[in-house]
């Protein structure tokens, strides 16, 4: 059984329907990417999973329905959401942001995890006592990812991690995400416009167009699909 199973998910803002009934799933240990142009509903998909927009449909995570749950309940169930724009809590320090990431945990190993992520992202360690709002975009993205991982989530939702970052930094970021998936087995659902990088670390993928899934397949299949290549790989 899949870790995340989504069936006929609809979502929107007031009278405007953005998602028109989509089905997808994420298996344990997979990296699944959702590709799509601006306005196709990628961000709304993640926001719907986290209970930040009005939804209908079935969302089953780890055997439990989380459809209609509030954001904090979804987080407590083991889903970490790295929102678009990184969601930095600007008035807190870097370390406080990371500790906040572990808010749902009750165990005593928060300190150990903290050190591990500082090791993974030395830049964060250098700035641990700094106000998080003062960091560069790339650093804030690292912080957002490390903070999500502090929750020891089963599934991480990543909303356009490459947005606003320089190409070199983006490459490093995706490499790190790939490593994390391989080493820790954390499942990921990534929403991206940069299809090349995303497909490089993905197991499978979906293509979203105006709120509907139009293509799905393995990463290799998608990378080989002519329509996908034309629309999202710029070839």
């Amino acid at each position: 059984m899949s870790l995340l199973e989504v069936r006929s998910l609809r979502a929107g803002y007031g009278p405007v329907e953005v998602l028109r009934g989509i089905d997808f799933h994420v298996d344990e240990g997979e990296v699944v990417v959702i590709l799509g142009a601006n306005g196709s509903g990628k961000t709304t998909t993640l926001r719907a999973l986290s209970g930040m927009v009005e939804t209908s449909g079935e969302v089953v995570f780890d055997g439990r329905s989380i459809a209609g749950a509030r954001p904090e309940q979804v987080a407590q169930a083991g889903v970490a959401h790295v929102p678009q724009g990184r969601g930095t809590v600007t008035d807190l320090t870097v370390e406080e942001n990371l500790r906040l990431g572990a808010y749902t945990r009750r165990d005593k190993e928060v300190g150990t995890d903290l050190e591990r992520w500082y090791e993974m992202f030395p830049r964060l360690a250098e700035r641990r006592q700094q106000q998080a709002g003062g960091m560069s975009g790339g650093e804030q993205q690292m912080l957002a990812i490390a903070r999500a991982m502090m929750a020891r989530p089963r599934l991480v939702l990543l909303d356009e991690p490459s947005l606003g970052l320089a190409p070199l930094i983006t490459q490093g970021l995706f490499r790190t995400l790939g490593d994390m998936n391989r080493d820790l087995g954390t499942s990921m659902l990534v929403v991206e416009q940069n299809a090349t990088l995303a497909l490089a670390i993905a197991t499978r993928g979906y293509v979203l167009e105006t709120g509907e899934i139009v293509v799905e397949g393995t990463a290799t299949e998608l990378a080989g699909n002519d329509d996908v290549r034309k629309a999202y790989l710029g070839i």
């Binding site: 954001p71 987080a75 970490a80 906040l100 749902t104």
Partner: peptide, 13 residues
């Protein structure tokens, strides 16, 4: 106080 949306996504009610 600083960023309610973000805090909620991290599990804070």
């Amino acid at each position: 106080a600083s960023n309610a949306d973000s805090a909620r996504l991290l599990g804070v009610s």
